[in-house]
Design a protein around this nucleic acid. Sequence first.
DNA 1: ATTGAAAGGTAAAAAGG
DNA 2: CCTTTTTACCTTTCAAT
Lengths: 162, 162
Amino acid sequence: MDALDRQIIAALRVNGRATYADLGRKVGLSASAVHERVGKLESTGVITGYHAMVEPSLVGLGVTALIGIQPTDTADDDEVADELGRLSEVESCYAVAGDEAFVVKVRVATVDELERTLGRLRRIAGVARTRTTVVLSTRFEGRPNTGEVPAPAVPGEPEPGE
Amino acid sequence: MDALDRQIIAALRVNGRATYADLGRKVGLSASAVHERVGKLESTGVITGYHAMVEPSLVGLGVTALIGIQPTDTADDDEVADELGRLSEVESCYAVAGDEAFVVKVRVATVDELERTLGRLRRIAGVARTRTTVVLSTRFEGRPNTGEVPAPAVPGEPEPGE
DNA sequence: ATTGAAAGGTAAAAAGG
DNA sequence: CCTTTTTACCTTTCAAT
């Protein structure tokens, strides 16, 4: 994983359909070299896949919610996570620190559907309570983070508290 | 948006690098027809982009947190959201119902970095408090939801509560 | 809206520095 | 690890339906 790999990854995070020739021009390598590097990044698990992003409201999924899942005393987290994964409306699932075992993001068509989803969640063995936060608007989502800290306004000026 | 479009979208959500020829074989159209449909889906904003997904821990972003942002009484939500967007470690930002204005997902390298990020968040004008939930593990994330309700175990059997 | 054909570009694999 | 080469496949455009 050198600087070239990082450049290639950054480019593919922005445009997952970029051709190897495009990427090669961008980073100054031949298409074959890029092809080989990308193949290695895929097979080592750095790049996990390529996905089209869709505007949820335009495919009938206008309601998003973040739901905290409080487990029962005897819950098996792995089993609960498996069950959560069986619900297609559960898009993401994070095991978290705190008194909730998981936070999940769900997307459904309507608040009626949300209510049904909450019912399904509560019926899972090991789920004691749910705490739902309705999303009013998604300001941005899944942005590429290159891991670079933005440069301070005055170079060399430390941030407050540093 | 007909059934063919939905099939194409579903295929591109699973594999964003599928060729038009691949897609055509899958849905029973010529590559040209798929090309035109995908172009239309892109220009109408249904498909918003294609992105490589990366294993965060393998690119030096091993720490994930969900942070609720409580606004001050006089906060302008749009301005706060803009400022949140300026921080590259803030990957997603949702405006939510409840006493928090936003929930954001951040990814950073270390807990030290997380502490610095919390400092940056709290220094944003309009931010009164933050509430941080540390992610222990990501069970799954960003799964394609085709909008289909999973079939009940016994077909025709209504769910409890329906 | 879809097809089929044609031109140019790209992917994938092989050979070699 | 890279480049160049080569073949087969793909993208893209366009005329026709």
